[in-house]
Design a protein around this nucleic acid. Structure first.
Lengths: 90, 90
DNA sequence: ATATATTATAGCACTTGTGCTATATTTAAT
DNA sequence: ATTAAATATAGCACAAGTGCTATAATATAT
């Protein structure tokens, strides 16, 4: 390589998983009759953050998901109750 | 307040959930016969990161967990197959 | 006991998650 | 059609996740 293109570090971002999680959260939240604002308020999570998760625009931490699960009063595994279809692209 | 003590922002950190996840990962990884290094290498995740997760010293993102689940060839929900005992302390 | 393998810690740089606030967009009610 | 409610976006500051590298501590073999 002539100009040693500085390799930009790519962090982990699992698009498929994130959008499946988003979908699952939207579903369950609706079932439970929570608005995003309800969930945000009762979980003490920013409303913008809830929206970001449900539109899979961020890669939340597990603690955020834990807190959501606690508020919705469901096992965490419920939110991850899906199957990957694709091979992961790193 | 005299000196308006600037309130430090406290981010979400679910200790109980994180240590349950750590335990679950350790178990499953052992069952599958992976060392931390195996898992790190095959998942393309830093070894130090795997260790940090298994000692619950960090709060990983869901994509990291997704990638681990993919490598271990298990449903993500397997890693979250536990129940909270405590009320969350915010 | 002593190598060897495995796991745990540490520090740094870089990237990104999160909270906050405000605003725009979409959806639902009337 | 208007209004109101709900959801989506945006930008900033700050905290923290991640990769990398090196080293320490612990467990396992021999």
């Amino acid at each position: 390589m002539q100009k040693s293109k500085k390799k930009k570090r790519v962090l982990i971002y699992d698009e498929e998983g994130l959008s499946l999680l988003a979908k699952r959260l939207k579903e369950i939240r609706a079932e439970k009759g929570f608005t995003q604002e309800d969930l945000a308020y009762e979980s003490d999570i920013a409303l913008s953050q809830i929206a970001r998760i449900e539109t899979s625009r961020i890669n939340p931490t597990v603690s955020t998901i834990f807190r959501i699960a606690r508020t919705l009063d469901i096992p965490v595994s419920e939110l991850f109750n899906f199957k990957f279809q694709k091979k992961q692209n790193i």
